[in-house]
């Protein structure tokens, strides 16, 4: 057990060092750009795993929280002139606030209502962004967003080296925070609630409060990611709220395997490169999302624990519960067969 644990620690250290060294070997600006985008998706996917995988909340507003982060950061930086670094933090806080509003009605509701309300919320955010075009740019998008800065450093003339390290730093920080969260008492309690609500409640876990916390925390990381995303791209477009974006990130969570945090991060890396590679094929913009859709169904059909579960080391935890194949209602009557 200790050996395994050590092995894992070493592997993670190795991966972090590799991540730090990548820009030395990869000088191509476009490839660096892909890494940066992949890191952003990695943060979004990993933080979604906290609510969808660990807490078992059927949260489909995660991409909307990402969008809230994007627009909150973009607007405070551009319109209010807030320092971009500060604006990124505001993006995370705004996403958390949005999550709290959504959590209010859903934390006590059954799964199906959670799905419906979170979907409806996503559309609401989109409608607000489109309708308030005088501020948000509407369907034209938000343009000329100021970007992050460091004293004596120019982020725009370094072939994306600075952005790479900021994105990588954010990803590592997010992953570490999320891993700590899921291994804390709080993480254990939301898992307990997911696996057996009755049991969790009977042990005195305050269900509504824990779910609220999970949603707020998960939204904070995705909001920060959104903040960085808009400061990096310097534009924001309401297309981010599309069902397509949601399904792309969802496919990362599924491919990586739920309840693992690491899984979605790696899946984000792989799928971003795949999906961008496909996007470069002429007239194949639609085909890329069609392939993403097929991938989702195939993974759910044949690898319900995620493709990461195929790896020998098993970065995922032992039981990604929500997607384990369990038979339900085999017969109306049971023989209490033990």
């Amino acid at each position: 057990m200790d050996a395994l644990h050590n092995g894992k620690t070493w592997l993670i250290a190795l991966l972090v060092i590799t991540g730090l060294l990548v820009p030395i070997f990869v000088e191509d600006t476009y490839l660096r750009h892909l890494f940066i985008i992949a890191f952003v998706y990695g943060m979004v996917a990993a933080s979604w795993d906290l609510t969808l995988g660990y807490a078992g909340i059927f949260n489909f507003a995660h991409i909307a929280f990402f969008g809230v982060g994007i627009y909150a950061t973009g607007l405070t930086a551009k319109v209010l002139g807030v320092d971009p670094w500060m604006a990124m933090l505001i993006g995370g806080l705004a996403a958390s606030a949005a999550a709290a509003i959504v959590a209010l009605p859903i934390v006590r509701l059954k799964g199906v209502y959670v799905i419906l309300v979170t979907f409806a919320f996503s559309q609401l955010v989109l409608q607000v962004v489109i309708s308030q075009s005088s501020i948000t740019g509407g369907t034209q998008g938000l343009v000329r967003v100021p970007t992050i800065w460091l004293p004596g450093y120019n982020f725009l003339r370094d072939y994306k080296l600075g952005y790479y390290y900021v994105a990588f730093g954010l990803l590592v920080a997010t992953t570490v925070c999320l891993r700590c969260l899921v291994r804390s008492d709080f993480g254990l309690s939301i898992k307990a609630l997911r696996d057996s609500e009755d049991y969790g409640v009977s042990r005195g876990i305050p269900i509504a409060r824990q779910r609220l916390k999970a949603l707020v925390a998960s939204a904070f990381f995705t909001g920060m990611a959104g903040g960085f995303y808009v400061l990096y791209l310097r534009v924001a477009s309401p297309e981010i709220f599309d069902f397509s974006t949601a399904s792309l990130v969802l496919s990362m969570v599924l491919v990586g395997g739920t309840s693992s945090i690491y899984g979605p991060v790696f899946a984000a890396l792989v799928l971003t490169f795949m999906s961008e590679g496909l996007a470069n094929i002429d007239n194949f913009a639609e085909g890329r999302f069609m392939i993403v859709a097929v991938t989702m169904v195939v993974v759910l059909l044949f690898f319900p624990k995620g493709l990461a579960s195929m790896l020998p080391n098993g970065f995922g935890e032992k039981t990604p519960e929500i997607l384990l194949h369990r038979k339900r209602r085999i017969a109306g009557s049971t023989d209490h067969a033990e």
């Binding site: 799964g111 993403v292 859709a293 989702m296 929500i322 997607l323």
Partner: peptide, 16 residues
């Protein structure tokens, strides 16, 4: 036959 048919079919019909 899946226990979580609701959640899974949300994702698969979304994919569709």
């Amino acid at each position: 036959d899946h226990r979580d048919i609701l959640l899974i079919t949300v994702m698969t019909t979304l994919a569709a």
